[in-house]
Amino acid sequence: MKYLTQILINKRDALQHRLTDSYRWHQALWKAFPSPAGTPRSFLSRVDNYGQNYRVYLLSDRAPMMQPWGEWATREIASNFLEYTHYRFDLRANPTIKRIIRSESGERKKNGRRTAIYDPDQLNEWLQNKAQQHGFTILNVEVGAPVTQHFRRKNRQGKHICVDFRGTLQVQNQNHFKDAFQIGIGPAKAFGFGMLVLQPLG
């Protein structure tokens, strides 16, 4: 990812533009990256409450096309940004466990069911496992309380469990760590989860 964009929008204006849940945000932010149908998503996003506003972060491989709402500011990420060894991090994730589902004959089905994690110890274990997969270790972390986010998609209700992880990390494998920054961590990335917000230390 080469560009970081910050968007500020007043909550009243967001309501007028029907930015009322994660799926609405998902649809609105896609419009900033016009592409032929079927093109894979090329950005990560995150939406925060910010006083009377929403603050949106977009991490993308190309500069977004500014939309007719909010205040948009885009900058190119420094070429050496991912070359440090220690960072302060902020990760909003959708921690889940994939359960195995079997047919009546006992055969394992291809697609399992994701179950949300609520237990603090299991949340910490989930993060530690993700860190190991993505080439870094957690030095310290504060785990936020799980929050349920509801959304409506094609007249059907859905929900995600949202957990904020904040702390410091140490990079062990530069390539895997860069991949985590590029593609995000955990499921539901199209709905505003998985972006690794980083601040270099030292």
Rank of each mutant, 00 (worst) to 15 (best):
G51D: 12
P68C: 08
S42L: 01
I97C: 04
P64F: 05
R113L: 10
A131F: 11
I117K: 04
F43N: 03
G70V: 06
T148W: 02
P146T: 09
E76H: 07
I161E: 15
Y118F: 15
A63N: 06
Y54M: 04
E83S: 11
F136Y: 13
T20S: 14
S35C: 13
V197G: 00
Y84S: 10
Q67P: 02
P200L: 06
P34N: 12
N53L: 11
S103D: 15
Q199H: 14
Y87V: 00
G70K: 03
I138M: 07
R152E: 13
Y54I: 03
M195W: 14
Q157V: 01
I9S: 02
T168C: 11
Y3G: 10
L139S: 09
I138Q: 04
T20M: 12
R18F: 04
E83Y: 03
P200G: 13
K110E: 14
A63P: 01
S79M: 07
A73M: 08
N94P: 00
H176Y: 12
K189E: 09
T85P: 00
A188Y: 04
Q157Y: 10
K98D: 05
I77W: 04
N175Y: 12
G194M: 04
P146G: 14
Q172L: 15
N53Q: 13
Q157W: 01
S22D: 15
L169Y: 09
Q16D: 12
S42C: 03
R46V: 08
P36S: 09
G51N: 11
G194Y: 06
E104G: 00
G106E: 00
A180N: 03
H150P: 00
M65C: 05
Q132K: 15
I97A: 02
D179G: 08
M66K: 15
L127S: 10
L198V: 13
L44R: 08
L19V: 10
R88G: 10
Y84G: 09
S105I: 01
T137E: 15
A116T: 03
G112D: 07
E76Q: 13
K31A: 15
N124D: 12
H86T: 10
N94H: 09
H150V: 06
P40D: 03
P36H: 09
